[in-house]
Simulated assay, not measured.
Amino acid sequence: MRAELSRIDTEDVLELRLESDHGGTGAGLALRKTGDEGTAIHVGLEWEGSRARAPLAGLPIADGVWEVLWVDGEGRSVPLSTRDAGFSVAERISYLRGRRERELRALRDQDGRLRVHSAAVSPYAEVGWVEVGTDAGTVTVSGVLAYESEPEHGGTAAEIVARQRGLDGLLTAPAEIDGARFRCVVPLAPVAEAHVFERKHNEWDLWLRTHDERPELRLAMHADDIVDKKRKIVYPTAVVDTGAGNEGAAQVRVRPYYTAKDELSLLALEHDGGAR
């Protein structure tokens, strides 16, 4: 059995479009964890022609990768294959929006078989856009709240929090939240003024803080499935004056970068007068 389309929507319903009309056959699905021949989780289907919907919300789908089996009306099961790669950035962003503690994703393995990946998740701030104002000395960041419920009131005031890693530096700047979307402008002058020249690198980790007693949300970019962004994405550098309070080097180079966990931070280095 093979599906032409296999996606999990925002309500954790596995949507299938099969190659032919199989409605009314009494067929269903079963999920079996990869490497575990134990009891499978049986899932009923809702039919509309060749389209089927399998509700997965609330099922005991533990962390890991699960095989998707087609079960015919006589109880015989075979692996369900798919033509669908199962990935869309736009659909991923839609799925991120809204409170959830578990993420379910439809995947196609190297042999074309359909899999469901299950993972526990925690809220964070998904970065969608980063712009460095090299002349203005700012970094503008926007994105969406991931796995977190939207504030009750639109246009909610918030703030971006920058923490100097391994040091005591703490900087804040205003941020805005409109529905699930956030936007902030980080001024780089305070980063330069707090620079510790005895350290070759000064890293600043970025968090989004709301004013309704929720935990702070780490800024990160995960929705595009590109890993190791630290080696793949390079943003422009802004050269910023340290201000009159610092002696010695007068300027600091600051740029956004992604950590080994694909979280967004700022990297500040002493400017040696060379090219930006």
Rank of each mutant, 00 (worst) to 15 (best):
A120D: 12
A90Y: 10
V89I: 15
A125H: 04
M1S: 13
T10M: 00
Y95N: 05
S265G: 09
Y95E: 14
E247M: 07
V185Q: 13
R214H: 11
P55L: 07
A40H: 03
D168I: 09
R214L: 14
D212N: 12
A275F: 06
G137H: 05
H195D: 04
L217Y: 04
S6K: 00
G75L: 05
R99A: 13
W204Q: 03
T259A: 02
D241E: 14
P55C: 05
A90S: 14
H201C: 05
V130A: 11
E11R: 15
E270S: 10
R99M: 12
L107Y: 02
L188F: 01
S265V: 10
G38V: 07
S50R: 13
D36W: 08
A223P: 01
E74L: 09
R7I: 15
V239Y: 07
P215T: 13
R76M: 02
A250I: 08
R183K: 13
V240C: 09
R231Q: 15
L69I: 04
E15C: 15
T259H: 01
L217T: 03
N202Q: 10
A192L: 03
R253G: 04
E103T: 04
F182E: 02
A260P: 02
S81W: 06
G49V: 06
E131M: 09
S81K: 05
G49K: 12
V144K: 03
L208A: 14
W70Y: 12
R199L: 11
E159M: 12
V130P: 10
G137D: 09
A275Y: 08
E101M: 00
A268H: 02
H201K: 08
D111F: 06
G154F: 11
D135P: 00
P123C: 12
R209I: 07
L170F: 09
G128F: 12
D224E: 11
G86Y: 06
R83N: 15
P174C: 03
F87I: 07
A54C: 11
E263V: 03
E193M: 05
R51P: 05
V139E: 09
G86M: 11
D168W: 04
R218F: 00
R163Y: 03
E263N: 09
T10E: 12
R209G: 13
R105C: 00
G86F: 10
H211E: 14
L5V: 15
A27C: 12
G112F: 13
T25E: 12
E216L: 14
W207Y: 14
P151K: 14
R32S: 01
L188Q: 00
A238K: 11
I233Q: 05
R253T: 12
E203N: 07
